[in-house]
Write a protein that binds this DNA or RNA. Structure first.
Lengths: 123, 123
DNA sequence: CTCCTAGTTGGATAATCGTAGAACGTTCGA
DNA sequence: TCGAACGTTCTACGATTATCCAACTAGGAG
């Protein structure tokens, strides 16, 4: 299910799988920061940004995230609802991608400074 | 009480009022982001950075923060322990100051991008 | 010395968050 | 057609967090 809620695409909101991915103009800084404040989500975003688009199971395995599928799915939702990543389904896989351009348009320099930081250990 | 725990000042840790303010080299990105992820703390940091050093009661009043003194004191602790701000006592007042240089040294561009973002409403 | 102002600390509480397991829907391959 | 792989949703639970009030410390003004 994909819905365009507003006429002006600049303010379009995409709803996929009951998760709302906001348009860049609607990003909220505190929400973006909260999404990135968790070590596991931060590691995920840094990894995906560096290695390119990838799907959930692959990301979890490559990073060595110590959590269940359902927990990762929860984290993915947080990231999407904040506007940090977008999701694309292909077959049974969910490919995620960091919305660098949108983030940089709304908060210039923010995502680059975060991606350039050293990756922290995932416990 | 002020203690220099390590010989090399680059890694010095300052302990003031039982609160540890880490040296720039010890900043953790996820902790900094978590400190700034709260709307009230974000507003506080943006305000102090823009208007210059100020003390707690003044900041609370000028921003219109809807919380008690003790809650603000709690938020100040979070910000200090993450390395976002430093505190200086003068008389009965606690002056806070954003550690721009330290933050920029550790995470280039991060604090500027956050300070340049529009201030969000404080509910 | 006494009071007022400024801030911190401890305890309590309600809300939020990260987590796992079970059940489920989809898609792909044998 | 059947089963395996991939991901989502629901529910529950423990941990963390934001919050307040009350009590406290410390400095400045009278």
């Amino acid at each position: 299910m994909i819905i365009e809620l507003r006429a002006n695409p600049r303010y379009a909101v995409h709803v996929i799988d009951d998760v709302t991915e906001p348009a860049a103009a609607d990003f909220e800084l505190s929400r973006v920061l909260a999404a990135l404040a968790d070590r596991h989500r931060l590691a995920t975003v840094q990894f995906v940004a560096r290695t390119g688009e990838s799907w959930c199971a692959r990301v979890m395995q490559d990073i060595g995230l110590p959590m269940s599928k359902s927990t990762f799915s929860h984290h993915l939702r947080i990231l999407r609802e904040a506007g940090v990543v977008t999701k694309r389904s292909e077959g049974t896989k969910s490919y995620m991608c960091v919305r660098k351009a949108d983030l940089d348009a709304r908060f210039p320099g923010l995502i680059d400074s975060i991606l350039n930081a050293d990756a922290e250990m995932v416990p």
